[in-house]
Amino acid sequence: MPPHRHHWHDLPRAVRHEVEQHTGGIIRAESLPDGASCELALTLHTATGPVFCKGGQSDGRTAWLYRKEARANRWLPDAVPRLRWTVERDGWLLLGFEHAPGRHPRLEPGSPDLDAVADLLATLARKLTPCPPVEVQPFTERWRGLIAPELVDGDTLLHTDMTPRNFLLGDRLRLVDWSAPCRGVAWIDTAFMLVRLVRAGHSPAEAERWAARIPAFAAADHEAVTAFADALVRLWERRQRRAPAPHREPLLDAARQWHTHRLNRQPSAT
């Protein structure tokens, strides 16, 4: 379940005042409807332009996500909005980011947005290899017991949450919400996005042809990718059994389709 969403005027006066020390006077605070892991997500409209602010209670169950995102931000390329300030006081932890206007990309077959998504994933894999010197969890640890570690071990900083709502397409495509980064083999983010394409109506074969445009995925070991698809199905089946959610079932079905396709392919087709 997502955390309870707070609003600007729920914050203590002292916290709001400290935010304004960074932003200047706030003309209007607009709560955003999206963002499953944020207790507070706002566009703060100021005299010098909008600022995106996210965060929550500093001792809450999601506070570690905000801290992780703040640590990683300085190492990320310019396709990621810059962290401008952090405020932590009176039980609240808030992050202020460069505002990134835009819409979420469309992933269905024929969408012109697919080119930008492929280009961004290729750029991120290239620029974030080797992994910057930021403390993040190895993917081998995150998926311990699901897959042989050597199949996903690598030295690329990964995002790992390839939901379309984390992409914003304006004058260029940006990738936001780096609250779950880890270190692993460079093709993992593309594999996560491939499942989203199947969910959006692509056949697994079509989604793999798209993914092959990203050099890291095109060079991936066939057995490793197939093992990843199998592990993803088992992981999402386990989550669905423990905490059923309507949005998970179509993604699980897409992962199953992809895994079946992998099992029926010949390695030479990679």
Rank of each mutant, 00 (worst) to 15 (best):
G25T: 15
V198I: 15
T129V: 12
A116L: 06
A224G: 09
G110A: 14
H4M: 15
E69Q: 01
S268F: 10
P250R: 00
D34E: 15
A220R: 08
L32R: 01
E98H: 06
V19T: 04
G184D: 06
H104G: 08
A205R: 07
L65G: 06
L197E: 05
G96V: 01
R174W: 08
Q137W: 05
L42H: 02
L114F: 09
L157N: 04
G56T: 10
L40R: 02
D59N: 11
W143H: 11
F228E: 01
R106K: 13
D155G: 08
G96P: 01
R242L: 14
H9R: 13
H7K: 13
V176W: 00
W210N: 00
P215C: 10
L107A: 10
C131G: 06
T123P: 03
N166W: 09
H45M: 07
P149W: 12
L40M: 09
A122V: 04
T62A: 11
A243M: 10
Y66D: 00
R61H: 14
R238F: 09
A212F: 04
F217K: 02
W258A: 02
S179K: 01
V198N: 04
L151R: 03
D189F: 03
N166D: 12
K68P: 00
L32M: 15
H202G: 02
S58Q: 11
G49F: 07
L158M: 01
T190C: 03
A118L: 12
P138Y: 13
E108S: 15
L121A: 09
K127I: 07
S111G: 06
L197W: 09
Q137H: 07
R265H: 10
P181H: 05
H247R: 14
T226I: 08
R142G: 03
W8A: 07
K127T: 15
V117P: 03
D189C: 05
H22D: 11
R262V: 00
A254Q: 00
G154P: 01
A36R: 10
G56D: 07
R82E: 13
R126D: 06
T62N: 14
H99C: 15
K127C: 11
Y66K: 00
R13C: 13
L83C: 08
I188P: 04
D59V: 11
L94H: 06
R165K: 14
A70Q: 08
H247A: 13
C53H: 07
T48Y: 10
R234C: 08
A148W: 10
V176H: 04
G60D: 10
G35S: 12
L235C: 06
T48L: 13
A63V: 14
R144V: 09
R16F: 08
P12W: 02
G201A: 13
V117M: 11
Q21H: 14
Q57W: 03
P101I: 09
H17G: 13
P112K: 06
P246L: 10
A191I: 00
A243R: 04
D78E: 15
L94K: 05
E18V: 13
R28Y: 13
H104I: 03
A212P: 01
G55S: 12
V176Y: 05
N73H: 05
D171M: 09
R126H: 08
T129N: 08
P250C: 03
T23E: 07
H247P: 07
S31A: 15
